[in-house]
Amino acid sequence: MVDPTSELGEDVDEADAPECAACGEKIIQSPTHRVVTWVEDGRVASRHFCSPECKAEYDG
């Protein structure tokens, strides 16, 4: 898993890159990458989206 606090554009291997929760595309060095986090059962959970449009579609 990629460190969510890492610098934008950091070299990320495709095998370690998160997938968009809406379209399934790997997210690599994307300036439109969005992460939604929440606490569930005392643990941090997250979903990654490749763009605001994919996030809106997922939230739809």
Rank of each mutant, 00 (worst) to 15 (best):
M1P: 10
M1A: 14
V2M: 07
V2N: 00
D3M: 06
P4M: 01
P4F: 00
P4W: 00
P4V: 03
P4N: 01
P4A: 02
T5E: 12
T5R: 09
T5H: 10
S6Y: 05
S6N: 04
S6A: 13
E7I: 09
E7D: 12
L8A: 13
G9Q: 01
E10Y: 10
E10F: 07
V12Q: 06
A15F: 10
A15D: 12
D16H: 04
A17D: 05
A17K: 03
A17P: 03
A17E: 03
A17V: 02
P18K: 04
P18R: 01
P18I: 00
P18D: 04
P18G: 05
E19H: 11
E19Y: 08
E19F: 08
E19C: 13
A21C: 05
A21L: 03
A21W: 04
C23E: 06
C23S: 05
G24M: 03
G24H: 05
E25V: 12
E25Q: 13
K26E: 06
K26Q: 06
I27L: 01
I27Q: 03
I27G: 01
I27C: 03
I27D: 00
I27E: 01
I28Q: 02
S30Y: 08
P31I: 10
T32R: 11
T32A: 08
H33D: 08
H33S: 07
R34E: 15
R34V: 13
V35M: 12
V35L: 10
V36P: 01
T37L: 08
T37I: 11
T37Y: 11
W38M: 02
W38Q: 09
V39W: 08
V39Q: 14
E40P: 06
D41A: 14
D41T: 08
G42W: 05
G42S: 05
G42K: 05
G42M: 04
R43C: 05
R43L: 12
V44P: 07
V44M: 10
A45E: 15
A45R: 14
A45M: 14
A45C: 15
S46E: 14
R47L: 15
H48Q: 08
H48V: 02
H48S: 15
H48D: 15
F49R: 00
C50P: 06
C50T: 01
S51K: 08
P52S: 09
P52R: 14
E53M: 12
E53T: 15
E53C: 06
C54W: 02
K55F: 12
E57N: 10
Y58G: 02
Y58F: 15
G60K: 15
G60Y: 09
